[in-house]
Computed example of a mutant assay.
Amino acid sequence: MFGSSIYVKTNPALTGGSPQHQAEAFWLAERRKRLHWRAGLAAVALIAGSWLVSPVFGLALALAVAAGHTLYHWRRRAASRTWRRGSHGERETARILRWALPRARYRVLRSRRLPGEEETYNLVVGPGGLWVVDSKAWHPEARVAEYAGRLFVEERPATALVDKLSDTASTISHMISRELGRPVDAVLLIAVHGGSLPRGGRITAEGVTLLRPLRVPSWIKSHPVAEHSPAEVEEIARVAARLLPPAPYR
Rank of each mutant, 00 (worst) to 15 (best):
S50T: 03
G129N: 06
E118N: 12
L63Y: 04
W99S: 15
L52R: 09
R107L: 00
A247N: 08
I220G: 05
L97K: 09
P198Q: 07
L123I: 07
Q20P: 05
Y7G: 14
T204P: 02
R199F: 14
L197W: 02
V225M: 12
E24R: 15
L97N: 01
H36D: 14
M1I: 12
A13L: 00
V8L: 12
L244A: 00
V53C: 05
S111G: 11
H174P: 08
L101E: 03
A23V: 04
A39W: 13
R38C: 13
S166G: 05
P115T: 01
G194I: 05
H223C: 08
G149H: 01
I203T: 04
E92W: 06
H88Q: 14
E206P: 00
S170N: 10
E119V: 13
L101G: 08
T204M: 01
L189P: 05
H228V: 10
K33F: 14
A13Y: 00
Y72S: 13
R202D: 05
T15K: 15
G200E: 06
L109W: 06
S80K: 10
L189H: 02
T93Q: 08
W138P: 01
L101Y: 00
E30D: 15
A231G: 10
Y147A: 13
P55R: 08
L14V: 03
R212G: 09
A78Q: 12
V65I: 06
P127Y: 08
H228D: 11
T168D: 10
E90S: 11
P213F: 06
R107C: 00
E154Y: 10
V124I: 08
V153S: 05
A100D: 07
A48M: 05
P246W: 07
A60E: 07
G58L: 04
L63G: 08
E92C: 10
L14Y: 02
H139L: 10
L211K: 01
R212Y: 09
P217G: 02
V133E: 01
M175G: 09
E146A: 15
E146L: 04
I47P: 06
G58D: 01
H73W: 15
G68I: 07
S4G: 11
H36Q: 15
W219D: 07
A226I: 03
L35P: 02
A42G: 07
E232M: 10
T159H: 01
L28S: 13
R31Q: 13
Q22A: 12
G207V: 01
L130D: 08
R215T: 12
S166D: 02
P224T: 03
E119Y: 13
I220R: 00
R238D: 13
W51M: 07
A137H: 06
V8S: 10
E227S: 15
G149Y: 07
V125Q: 09
H139A: 15
R178H: 13
A142G: 06
T159M: 01
G195D: 05
V56P: 04
W219M: 06
G68H: 07
E234V: 08
A78N: 11
